[in-house]
Design a protein around this nucleic acid. Structure first.
Length: 468
RNA sequence: GGGUCCGUAGGGUAGCUUGGUCGAUCCUUUGGGCUUUGGGAGCCUGAGACUCCGGUUCAAAUCCGGGCGGACCCA
């Protein structure tokens, strides 16, 4: 892929996922095919969350007074908040913010809900849209002004330990989610200057894009008691004393879809993991004059068999050359194509072509086993897509030991660089400036030696890259 | 915040320097018809655009000013 940016922009339109021509900067339209991918992705995620969370829905408007309560938090967002200032022709008494995220919408309510330790823990999530007035270059799904798909979980606990455990649970859920989609990732602790405003610390998932830059695709925050103190969320413990709660929150966004597209795509177009593909199988009947009925009878029957078993299948009977159909469905990322022509029917076989590796196979046709056969292939495609994505991220991750190597590696190979680091904020910010990169964060590791940048004793393994 | 560049059918473009030949080029898209179908077929016939406002001029897609929109670079 020569130019990822351009490829990404084009594929959204070519595969009929989104229309970015909506006349407001940073806002796009989900087209039916894109919306289905989004829907299947969300179903997968919400199923994982439902095991221990409950789904809720909070209002989109937040009064200025609530939004402004937590000083550090609001500072992190104030430059990108959209405001509603009028109701009809009248000025509102109090400005209302379009939620940039929902802490300040939810936590005043949590304060009402929590009375005793019996009310804890609370674990809720919602999937909503949020708004951020981005000033940098917007890009569909990656940097947008309306995040149309913002899945945010919020939990409330009696103890610090429980909150700490919940952070691990959040990470575990997201891992499972990304694994199911075959999206590779690295996890690290964001540096102090880049954590979620108001949080104790932030754990982040980053995936690597085809051009070597990384994209943040998920975050898990330990909020400590900051918000509890601001919004007065207290409970009565079993000794009758009031204590502040410990909170976490974690979220995912449209960027998951962006990384899904980026992780698996190639020059031909999308490669969709079967679990989220709007069409998992496309049947292309090869129709010759005088033999229409033979072929169509066969493919209609095949389509019904697959459909009845729950496979998302589409038969393409359009009056077009088969070649054109192949290109089109490949561009759209359908995992498996089945071709059936008169010749195959004579031989009692069908042709399968996998989108992930392009392999073409003639397989014997048996009505009783075809569903199993197709499911096996789809499962294998899922595995292969994930393996390929993980391999790419591994190959693009480099350990370096000198400042020269940082520059050289970033410029030549791109990707993620790991090295020893002192953990000092001044040193970190200096690195970001000097090497023109971002510090993603640190990972737990036994580190010997010195900081690659300042030469002090190293305490961490740090991840750095160019980012979106 | 500062700077550079750019706006021609749904998408991509030619024309602009040197105003007139533009009734605006080509590819793609798209309606209808014929024909055809094992990797983007062909033919016939239709559809579709000069970002907006003002100025200069006999004459503006083309020159000038402004608005709106977009891309990129720097802080």
């Amino acid at each position: 892929m020569k130019n990822f940016s351009e490829w990404f922009h084009n594929i959204l339109e070519e595969a009929e996922l989104m229309d970015a021509r909506y006349p407001v900067k940073g806002m796009s339209v989900w087209l039916p095919r894109g919306f289905k991918i989004r829907k299947y992705s969300l179903e997968l995620l919400e199923k994982l969350l439902d095991e221990e969370h409950e789904q809720t829905l909070f209002p989109m408007l937040i009064p200025e007074s609530e939004l402004a309560k937590e000083a550090i938090h609001v500072k992190g967002f104030e430059e990108e908040v959209y405001w509603v200032t009028k109701g009809g022709l009248r000025d509102l008494n109090e400005k209302l913010a379009l939620r940039p995220t929902s802490e300040t919408a939810m936590y005043p309510m949590f304060s009402l809900w929590v009375r005793s330790h019996m009310d804890l823990p609370i674990k809720v999530y919602q999937t909503v849209n949020t708004f951020r007035y981005e000033t940098k270059h917007t890009r569909p799904l990656i940097r947008v002004r309306e995040i149309t798909t913002f899945n945010e979980s919020h939990t409330v606990h009696a103890t610090e330990e429980e909150a700490e455990e919940q952070v691990q649970t959040g990470i575990k859920i997201y891992k499972e989610f990304f694994d199911a989609l075959g999206i590779s990732y690295s996890i690290c602790k964001r540096p102090a200057w880049d954590k979620f405003p108001g949080s104790k610390y932030t754990m982040a998932f980053d995936t690597i894009m085809p051009d070597g830059k990384t994209l943040q695709i998920g975050t898990v925050h330990n909020l400590g008691t900051t918000f509890a103190k601001t919004f007065d969320i207290q409970f009565e413990n079993d000794e009758g004393e009031h204590e502040y709660v410990h909170q976490t929150c974690y979220g995912l966004s449209d960027r998951v879809i962006a990384s899904l597209i980026a992780a698996h795509g190639d020059e031909k177009g999308l490669k969709l993991p079967p679990v989220v593909a709007p069409e998992q199988v496309v049947i292309v009947p090869i129709i010759f004059k005088e033999k229409e009925d033979i072929v169509l009878n066969f493919t209609d029957n095949l389509e019904k068999l697959l459909k009845d078993s729950g496979i998302r299948v589409i038969q393409d009977k359009r009056d077009m050359r088969p070649g054109k159909k192949y290109y089109e469905w490949e561009q759209r990322g359908v995992p498996l194509r089945i071709e059936v022509g008169p010749r195959d029917i004579e031989n009692d076989s069908i042709v399968t072509i996998r989108r992930d590796n392009g392999n073409k196979e003639f397989i014997d046709y048996n009505e009783n086993t075809i569903v199993d056969t197709v499911n096996e292939i789809l499962d294998d495609i899922t595995k292969e897509l994930k393996a390929a994505s993980n391999k790419f991220q591994e190959e693009k991750t480099f350990f370096v030991e000198t400042p020269q190597q940082i520059k050289k590696t970033i410029n030549k190979k791109g990707g993620i660089i790991t090295c020893n680091w002192c953990g000092n904020t001044d040193c970190g910010k200096d690195m970001e400036e000097q090497y023109d990169i971002d510090i993603l964060g640190t990972q737990e590791a036994q580190v010997d030696g010195i900081c690659v940048h300042c030469g002090e004793t190293a305490h961490h393994k740090v991840l750095i890259s160019k980012t979106y």
